[in-house]
Each structure stands twice: as C-alpha cells, then as structure tokens.
Nucleic acid binder design. Structure first.
Length: 599
RNA sequence: CGGGGCGUGGCUCAGUCCGGUAGAGCACUGCGUUUGGGACGCAGGGGUCGUCGGUUCAAAUCCGGCCGCCCCGACCA
C-alpha cells in the first residue's frame, strides 16, 4: 500500500471529541473516523488491524473445534418474544418494522438464532458436543457511547455458542473457551484478567469477564494479588468481621446535632465508622404489574451498598436512588433514618449480614439530631431479608485467605457464560439422549468485541508519538520511507518496495513528496513495528536504513538484504510475543470461589 | 433520563460578555526555493457561523424552540 493513495489523514491535533488515549490516537493516526455518537468508520489502517485480530480469533476458535458461520443481523421479533428478552431489554435493543409492519430486532447477540437453528439441525446426543461461532456486526443502542471504540453502539463481535448434551459437557467447552481467551490476549499483546462476573440479562449460572486493566475502564474489579482472587466488584465476596461482637449494651438515645452523615456522626460521638450502620434508600421497580416500593439497604457505616446484590435479594428489576420526598413518605428522617418507626408496609428492609452479626452499632433514631447507640440486631431492630449486600472495597480482606483486595478499573474485552437451558427450553431446541428421552440442549455463549480489543491495545501501547502497535495487530509490518526526489533513488526505493512484497512482507510505502520530518512523524503515528529508509545518504553509506520504529540509530544494510532481514525480524517479534505465558483455567482454578448469584 | 459544557472552512481554536464588512494556525491548490524528525517565500481556493423562529435599521454575537456532539451521573449481556 502506498501512502499517496491511503485514505486517512494524520492529524496534528486530536479532534475535541477524543476522550481517551486510544480514541485520540486512533483519530490522529488516521485509523477511524466518527460518523455519529458511537458509530465509527474504520479507515483502511484500522480495517487491516481488525482483520488481524479477527484472524487470531478465528484461529483460536478453530483450534477448539469451532465452526465458523454467519447469522443475520436482523431477526424477527417472535424469537426474542419467546425467550422474553423482547420485553426484558428496554431501549438498548434496536427495533424496527418491515413494510408489512412486522416487528424486527437488530441483533445484540445471537442466542435466539442459534437455539432456533438447533431446533431443526440437532436431533441426537450423537451430534453433540458442537461449537459454532461468527464474527459479525451487533447493534446496541447504548444510553451513552463513550471512549471512542471502547463503547460503541454498532460493533463487530466474535460470538461463539456451545451445544452440549450435559452440564459436564458445557463445563468442558467453557474451560476450553476460558483458555482460548487467554491465548487470544497473549497473541494480541493484551494482558487479560479473568474475573467472576454477574450473569445479568444472559441468565445462566456461571460467567467470567476478560478484563483489560485500565483507568479508562468502566467496570470496577476486586483483585487479590496474593491469592489470585479476581471478581467484578458487583459480585465480589470479602471476609467480614464485626468491629464489635461483645455483649450487647443497652439501647440509648443520644443527641447528635447536625450529624447527618457518617463522618459527622463518627466525629460527634468520637467513634469509628465501623461501629455505625446506615440506611440507603432506593425506589424498587418490581415489574409491570407490581407497585413500586422503597427498598432500604442497611450496611455498616464505613461500607457502600452493592446495588446489584441488593436488587437480587429484594427481587427488584431495577433500583433507583430514592429522593428525600420518598424517604419522608415512609416515615423516615433523612440523615437520621433507622429501622425504627418507618412504615414497613411501604418499605422492604434488607440488612447486610455483617450488620446483623455486629453488636452495639450506632444507628439513626429516625428523629432529627438524635441517634441510638447500642443497637443490636434481633433485639432492637430487624430486617425483612439478611444477606451480603455490602460492596467490596479497596483493602477489604479477600474471601480465600483474608488478604487485601485491590479495586481497579477494567475494560471488558470478552465474556463467557454458561447459559444452561434457558434459550433451548424456550425455543424448543432439544435432542434425544441415550435413553430416548427428549432434553433441552445445554448452551454456552462467549463474546469478544473486536473493535474494543483494538481500543484496548491502543490504550496499552499508544503514547504521544503514535500507535506503537505490536506486530501481530499492526496494519503493516514495515514502513518504507523514501527521502529524495532524485529519480534514481526513487527507482531503487520502488524496487525495494516490490522486493519486500515479493517476500510477503506487509509494507506501507511512503512515496509522497514530503519532507523527512513529516514522513517520520507520520510513520510514528501509524505505528508499524519496522522502519526502512532509502535516501541519497543511506545509499551512499551502502543501502537502506533498517531498524525498529522510532530508533534514531539504525543499521545500514544493502538493499538486497532488506527483505530477508525484515522477515527474520518480523518472525522474531512474533515469537517474542508468544513467549509470554498464557494463564489457564487450571492455573486460575484456585481463585475459583463458587459462583454465586444471591437469591 | 437528570446535571454540565460545546456547536465558527477538513482539524485546533479566537471573535459572542459590549450587535456594525467573518479571522488565525495547521491542512489544501499553483509557482519557486528547500530535503534526515511535523521547511520557507509569493499567490490562491474554501465558511448560509448547527438549525428554525423572534428582537433590531443591522445578529456568529441578544431571546426562544429544536437538532447534534462531549463530559459527569443514571443505565449497560
């Protein structure tokens, strides 16, 4: 490819919409352009990188017996109605009607279609296990796209689906994906951390997310370096020890003027926040035909409520922060609220298990400027539900050995779900087992965002000077720069360009009439691993300058030697990448606390 | 959906407060000089100032509606 024909200008300054390192550099280096919020065109450079990532995905999926196929982007609504997701998923689902007024869905994922196919194609246990995948466009009308390619509304995803006759079979294919995802990370130059995750709208029991740790990430993760425990914060466990488990003292009403926050309360009474409890109010949506109800999370004063777990325990579809008006309406006093004296008909109280086993906590008196000391669960107050609703925090003891957890941000590059039979049962995807009985197929689903992966790679490698991509995903192996208008020099560069292509080196040839500074700066921006320069000076010294990108002191080698040398270095760069050990399910197994979905 | 910010040539931005002939740098075109880390000179082209309406002798500028983009939050398989 010649730079003189390449679509995609480099930019001296990033457009103002850029909000992350990857976004700014993908724009500046001429990889992508934004069409509208969350909608991007991939210019030729990005397209080549994405194709390389797709090829890695393809090879790793094929290596675990995946069969590549392709399913439609537009689905009839009936399929999604049968599994219920038509109703469960709100505005995130793209919906349209065809000319006859039939409801259609823009695919967000393909469980329904796979299950539908199985209905006709899978008859017998003899056909199982099976694994299919495709690499295809998805549409999710995200409430807020952000971070360039990190969260887009339209994106390409590799999604694979496993079909098994038993739960054990599903587990085996799940582990194969787990290991394959780590290999994919290694080959693409991305360090991925597998964390336990919520199953969310996918349903099923066990799920992991593959995270790239980055401050630009939108998820919070709890990781223990000592034990290897790793979990999405929203499902993270941690050990809880009461600050006070001594004998109960009498309940006492104390004056605490103006102490409407935990900090003020601790200061006012001269106690640690570990010895207090607080109520956090939410408005719960329990479904279309159930009245809304206030849900109260009662956690220790120094902790936060895990809204996801609280929602599960309460059985709510959605929890929204309540405003003071709602709080007053159930007879509570904001800032001094407590389980005392509130209207329990109108509110569901969920206490964290730690609160329930702690003694002598300070809680609100439900009266302005007063609190109770010596409050004890069971004796002085109770809850409708007790369970783990406190959010893990930085420094919390991990559940395996009590070593400190670290809370970091991460970008979800991929996820894997053991779905079970939710979709197969809903859509009648069954097989006949050895005993002649009809059974629903056990399904698993596994996704990796291709564009998001490129964004993460850019986050990892890009700096102020350019993309700096690893050899496995760089659009080209090598940039060839010619620095001369002398026809003889240019002719030699042209011959080298041809020779490199002949040697199957992927080469971007900067054949423009531009100053050296421009060409070097652009080469840095575009970020290919190798750079070869042909100029009058280099020829005088014996050939071409050859070296890794950005080097200031490069070797001079004869033009004839460049293609073979390039091949050797490219192979070496590839080999270096793959030397990194790839984590496996077996090596991570020790981290595997039983997956839990509180219910 | 709530809060905030911004919309001026392909990009970055000034001009808006205080209404009076639309600007700069980069990019682009032509000619010349220049050729090892974003060159220089000369001459050019390109903007209904997001959009619709209002106020005014006069609107990029003031007022209102709408649209779009970005950020924070909510949300997110």
């Amino acid at each position: 490819m010649r730079v003189s024909f390449l679509l995609g200008q480099t930019l001296r300054e990033a457009p103002s919409e850029a909000d992350t390192v990857s976004h700014a550099m993908l724009l500046r280096a001429g990889y992508v352009r934004q069409l509208a919020a969350g909608l991007f065109s991939n210019l030729p450079l990005a397209q080549r990188s994405l194709q390389k990532i797709e090829q890695i995905l393809r090879e790793e999926m094929n290596a675990i017996q995946g069969q590549e196929m392709c399913m439609p982007v537009v689905h009839p609504a009936e399929l999604w109605q049968k599994t219920g997701r038509w109703y469960e998923i709100g505005d995130t689902m793209g919906r349209l009607k065809d000319r006859r007024g039939r409801d259609l869905v823009l695919a967000m994922t393909h469980e329904e279609v796979v299950a539908h196919l199985c209905k006709t194609e899978i008859r017998s246990y003899r056909q199982l296990p099976m694994m299919v995948y495709h690499i295809q466009t998805k549409f999710r009308d995200e409430p807020r796209a952000r971070g360039g390619l990190i969260r887009t509304r339209e994106f390409v995803m590799k999604d694979s689906y496993t079909l098994d006759a038993s739960e054990e079979g599903l587990h085996e294919q799940y582990i194969r994906h787990y290991d394959a995802y780590h290999r994919i990370g290694v080959r693409a130059g991305l360090k991925l951390v597998a964390v336990r995750s919520d199953v969310g709208m996918m349903g099923g029991k066990i799920a992991h997310e593959f995270m790239y740790i980055s401050p630009s990430g939108e998820d919070s993760l709890a990781i223990c370096d000592a034990t290897g425990y790793a979990s999405n914060l929203e499902v993270a466990d941690f050990r809880k020890e009461p600050a006070d488990s001594g004998p109960p003292r009498p309940l006492e009403r104390v004056h605490t003027p103006g102490a409407a926050t935990i900090d003020d309360l601790s200061a006012c009474l001269g106690i640690a926040s570990e010895n207090t409890a607080k109520m956090v109010f939410f408005t719960g949506d329990f479904g279309p035909n159930v009245p809304r109800r206030i849900v109260i999370g009662l956690v220790r004063g120094d902790m936060e409520v895990n809204v996801l777990q609280l929602g599960y325990l309460a059985g709510a579809r959605e929890l929204l922060p309540a405003d003071d008006e709602d709080i007053v309406a159930i007879g509570a006093t904001p800032g001094f609220a407590s389980p005392y004296g509130i209207d329990r008909e109108k509110a569901l109280v969920v206490a964290d298990d730690l609160v329930a086993k702690s003694t002598n906590l300070v809680v609100g008196a439900n009266e302005k400027d007063y609190h109770f000391t010596g409050a004890n669960y069971g004796r002085d107050y109770d809850a409708d539900i007790v369970g783990p609703i406190a959010l893990a925090y930085d420094g919390a003891p991990d559940p395996i050995a009590g070593k400190p957890l670290r809370v970091v941000r991460g970008i979800e590059v991929g996820n894997i779900f053991q779905l079970g039979t939710r979709y197969s049962a809903a859509l009648g995807a069954t097989f006949t087992n050895e005993s002649g009985q009809e059974r629903p197929i056990f399904m698993g689903s596994y996704g990796i965002g291709v564009g998001r992966m490129l964004a993460c790679i850019a986050e990892e490698y890009a700096d102020d000077y350019g993309m700096n991509l690893p050899v496995s995903v760089a659009p080209f192996h090598l940039v060839l720069i010619v620095l001369s208008r002398n026809p003889e020099v240019r002719r030699k560069a042209e011959m080298l360009y041809a020779a490199l292509q002949e040697a199957e080196v992927e080469v971007l040839f900067d054949d423009r009439q531009a100053s050296p500074g421009v060409k070097f700066a652009d080469a840095d921006l575009r970020g290919m691993p190798l750079r070869v320069t042909v100029s009058e000076r280099s020829l005088r010294r014996g050939g071409a300058e050859f070296g890794l990108r950005r080097s200031r002191n490069m070797d001079i080698i004869s033009l004839d030697d460049v293609p073979a040398r390039a091949r050797r270095v490219i192979e070496r760069l590839h080999a270096e990448m793959e030397q990194r050990p790839s984590p496996t399910w077996a090596s991570d197994r020790r981290t595997e606390a039983p997956p839990q979905r509180a219910s």
